[in-house]
């Protein structure tokens, strides 16, 4: 019998379950909350929320990327948005950038500036990858570039609003004891 060295799993089963649920929640929100606003990036107001909350709870690099990947794969398979299979790149980028923001800000997502910045990072990353995919599939550069400025403003705005809501929700989760934090922001269960 071959002995398999026991290695500590990076994510626990509970964390994987939570991240998968958060990824599924992004997909459900994208499907259910259809607002015909026609403003670029308006879905960022709710898409970043499960990712930020997931990252704030799990507090490990890679958690946001995992959530983004799960939601991207679901959206790609169901093909409900205009980018179809390319959604996996968009949402993985969204998750990865919130991941990076969480790491830089030590997962203090309950703080409004950090939550807002994480939301902006996620929504802007999604926009940039969207532009890259458009260019890759042959959309002329001028068509993509001519809306870049206005589009980035709306992505920042809606990402910031989503981040703001997330910060409020994370703060409430901490206050009610669902997430444990000490005064420095460290997880009380880490010791």
């Amino acid at each position: 019998m071959i002995a398999v060295p026991s290695a500590e799993k990076y994510f626990t089963l509970n964390e994987i379950a939570l991240m998968s649920l958060m990824g599924g929640l992004v997909f459900v929100m994208k499907t259910a909350l259809r607002m015909p606003l026609g403003i670029p990036g308006h879905t960022g107001i709710f898409l970043v929320i499960p990712v930020i909350i997931g990252v704030a709870i799990i507090r490990k690099p890679g958690s946001g990327t995992y959530i983004g990947l799960v939601s991207g794969v679901l959206l790609s398979f169901f093909g409900i948005s205009g980018m179809h299979v390319f959604d996996v790149f968009l949402y993985t980028a969204l998750g990865a950038s919130i991941d990076a923001a969480g790491y830089v800000f030590r997962y203090r997502m309950e703080s409004v500036p950090f939550g807002v910045l994480a939301g902006i990072a996620g929504n802007l990353a999604k926009m940039v990858v969207n532009f890259a995919v458009n260019l890759a599939i042959g959309v002329p550069l001028v068509v993509v570039a001519v809306g870049a400025g206005i589009s980035s403003i709306s992505h920042v705005l809606f990402g910031a609003l989503g981040g703001l809501i997330s910060a409020y929700l994370v703060a409430r989760l901490i206050k009610t004891g669902v997430i444990s934090r000490d005064a420095t922001g460290a997880d009380c269960n880490d010791s």
Binding site: R106, F114, A145, V146, A148, G149, S152
Partner: peptide, 30 residues
């Protein structure tokens, strides 16, 4: 962390400026 947040917002403003520069260039080209 407060300095990181300030840097983060500065980066966002920088990125927005960059995107607007791209848009203005494209409009001029058109």
């Amino acid at each position: 962390l407060s300095k990181r947040a300030a840097l983060g917002f500065a980066l966002v403003v920088l990125l927005l400026g960059g995107f607007f520069a791209v848009q203005i260039t494209a409009e001029e080209w058109l």
